[in-house]
């Protein structure tokens, strides 16, 4: 998260070029949306498993970063090719992700007003997504599945077989746009939901079934294990193909590295940021 924000600050200030970053996590990590209540997290369980907890700078709800390809795209807001507005920019970047996943042979669609609906679950998600987003982000209370990013789809997110395959979130700040997200290689619904607090009346098995109806992963869609590098290569190719751009391999600039270290120490590595919204603290 610190690296993503460091890139955002530098790209927004035109000190670094528009950037696509693909990465994975040293340890499985649960991330919360910028304004999501931390009380949704079962911290004892997280600790017992040795998993980390972070809070993203971006919106949305909880994601378990484990077996996935994590992507982040950072663009200056004044980039001429970037359409104004959140939904339009999602659509723009989703085209690149769609092209990449299509190269892998994934039958992927953009979720949206014109997307083909192949399951009742997605229709349900369409009706309730704004409402769920609201409850998940603002209160962080209620059913554990409602606190999960993959429990519903937003417009122009990527779905396969009617189920969400890529979960994404944005932040616009420092003159730049950061969109990052998870392309799931594998999804263990039971493990993920065990990291979230449930209300007593919640039925864990029912919650697992519900999440399975809304979310999927590449191994399930393709019927085989998919390697991280294979997906990363396809995503890079998809960005070049769909957006008509050239990507050059690069590393963080010295300034980005410095900023990332500072942000990790002062923000993302500290409880004052990670637990800044938590009803139990008040």
């Amino acid at each position: 998260m610190a690296v993503d924000e460091a890139i955002l600050r530098e790209v927004g200030a035109h000190r670094a070029p528009p950037t696509l970053r693909l990465y994975s996590w040293a340890r499985p990590t649960l991330s919360l949306g910028a304004n999501q209540g931390a009380e949704v997290v079962n911290r004892e369980r997280l600790q017992a498993l040795g998993y980390d907890l972070v809070r993203r700078p971006s919106g949305g709800r909880a994601v378990l970063h484990d077996r996935e390809v994590t992507y982040s795209v950072v663009l200056p807001l004044d980039l001429p090719e970037l359409p104004a507005g959140v939904i339009a920019s999602y659509r723009y970047l989703s085209r690149a992700l769609l092209a990449g996943l299509t190269r892998l042979g994934v039958p992927v669609d953009l979720y949206g007003p014109h997307a083909p609906f192949t399951s009742g679950a997605v229709r349900w998600a369409e009706r309730s997504s704004a409402e769920e987003e609201a409850s998940g982000s603002r209160r962080g209370r209620g059913r554990a599945a409602g606190a999960a990013c993959f429990a519903s789809s937003s417009w122009y997110e990527l779905i396969a077989g009617g189920r969400k395959l890529v979960g994404s979130a944005q932040v616009r700040r420092y003159g730049g746009l950061l969109q990052h997200g998870s392309i799931l290689l594998h999804l263990d619904e039971g493990l993920f939901l065990s990291l979230l607090n449930h209300e007593e009346q919640d039925d864990h098995e029912e919650a697992i079934r519900a999440l399975r109806g809304h979310a999927t992963a590449l191994d399930r869609v393709l019927g085989r294990e998919v390697a991280w590098q294979e997906v990363a290569d396809a995503v890079v190719a998809g960005f070049c193909q769909a957006l008509g751009i050239t990507l050059e391999p690069g590393t963080l600039t010295a300034r980005e590295q410095e900023l990332a270290l500072m942000l990790e120490g002062e923000k993302y590595g500290s409880d004052s940021w990670t637990l800044r919204r938590c009803e139990f603290n008040h």
């Binding site: 959140v86 937003s154 979130a169 932040v171 616009r172």
Partner: peptide, 11 residues
Amino acid sequence: AVIESVKSVSD
């Protein structure tokens, strides 16, 4: 101030 809309956080 910060506004979070569905999926985006903006200053």
